[in-house]
Nucleic acid binder design. Structure first.
Length: 205
DNA sequence: CCTGCGATCTTCT
DNA sequence: GAAGATCGCAGGA
């Protein structure tokens, strides 16, 4: 949540699988503050998809979005409170070769995990990791959050959350490391255009 | 460099 | 039926 989110910048996210190991230094995160936050998946209460957000802190909330992509959150609220931090971007410290094999279209190493879905793709994060403990005692867990070299407070910038509109956009709950090339570009909220002309006057023949 | 748009799961109306 | 915590491609400058 809000106290925790900026402190995650600079921490290491370690993904271990039989393919190898990737260490990611977090450079961009977004806080989601539970049932009272209109931008949060938990705003309308518990569903099957967001259930792990209501679980114990330190665990993963992985969700599927836009029919194609996964995104990874760290649950931060006490059990039942549904707060979380979306891990949006990071710098690949080790394992760039493996990350590139999973993201062959990245033009530069800085793009390997530049954005939530890219981060999940580079680290091979999918729903099988939903609800798993990222901070527990099991050091062999496939996904872990570890203490790294923290980003200095004065290097932390904040602003509105990406793609969050309406009442949820008033809070500057996106945090990033100033000047870091792995931070994703900011995109304001834009409702998708209606596809009206296709079926407005009957089925096509 | 930039802009527009298609991909199609999950949830809510 | 519609929108969403997005990305990559096509096309133009």
């Amino acid at each position: 949540m809000l106290e925790v989110a900026p402190q995650l910048l600079g921490r290491y996210l370690v993904r271990t699988s039989d393919e190898g190991c990737i260490v990611l230094r977090l450079t961009e995160v977004e806080a989601y503050a539970g049932e009272a936050d209109p931008g949060s998946h938990a705003f309308r209460g518990l569903t099957r998809r967001n259930a792990s957000m209501f679980g114990p802190p330190g665990h993963a909330y992985v969700y599927f979005i836009y029919g194609m992509w996964f995104s990874l959150n760290l649950v931060c609220g006490a059990e039942g409170h549904a707060s979380g931090v979306l891990l949006r971007a990071g710098e690949v410290i080790t394992g760039a070769g493996l990350a590139r094999a999973r993201r062959p279209k990245a033009r530069k190493d800085a793009e390997l995990a530049k954005g939530p879905a890219r981060l999940a793709t580079a680290l091979d994060v999918d729903k099988s990791l939903n609800g798993t403990d990222l901070c527990g005692v099991d050091e062999s867990a496939p996904l872990r959050v570890l203490t790294g070299e923290p980003v200095q407070q004065k290097q932390v910038r904040s602003g509105p959350r990406t793609g969050v509109g309406g009442a949820g956009s008033v809070h500057p709950w996106r945090y990033w490391a100033d000047g870091d090339p792995t931070v994703s570009p900011y995109r304001p909220h834009q409702p998708r255009r209606r596809q009206s002309s296709l079926d407005s006057d009957g089925p096509k023949v």
